[in-house]
Amino acid sequence: MSKDEKIIVHSSTKNLVLIRKFIEEQALKLGFDENVINQIILAVDEACTNIMKYSHSFNEENTIQICTKLIGDDFKIQIKYNGKSFDPNNIQNPDMDEYFKSFRVGGLGIPMMKKFMNRIEYDYKIPDENSLTLIKSIS
């Protein structure tokens, strides 16, 4: 990947398909295998779905900016958004035995993000800019 790539979309679940396509294109350029590409796509989908739902309450006037870059061996996907913040690192994975016993619904997006990516970084800038970076190592 020779340069940073960027996409900005309105915060609507109908744009998830565009986001997935963008991530697939960038990951393909780096030569990740198909299985890993699918995992990265899913992690980004889950992150953006959470932002649309929890940070933007499905208000489509908001936007989400996704920027991809390669730094050393790290494929970094930075997602910038306004609104309510959430740091996935502060959220504990559910106990899956309990999860299925109690027929829980939801709450699987963040565990999937953590499982599929090597690292997740979260940052907040005043007055209203959240930055969530999902990182997958090439090696």
Binding site: L42, T49, R104, V105, G106
Partner: peptide, 10 residues
């Protein structure tokens, strides 16, 4: 994605 999985759980 997990949104789809959630429907079966629901």
């Amino acid at each position: 994605s997990s949104a789809g999985l959630g429907v079966f759980m629901a």
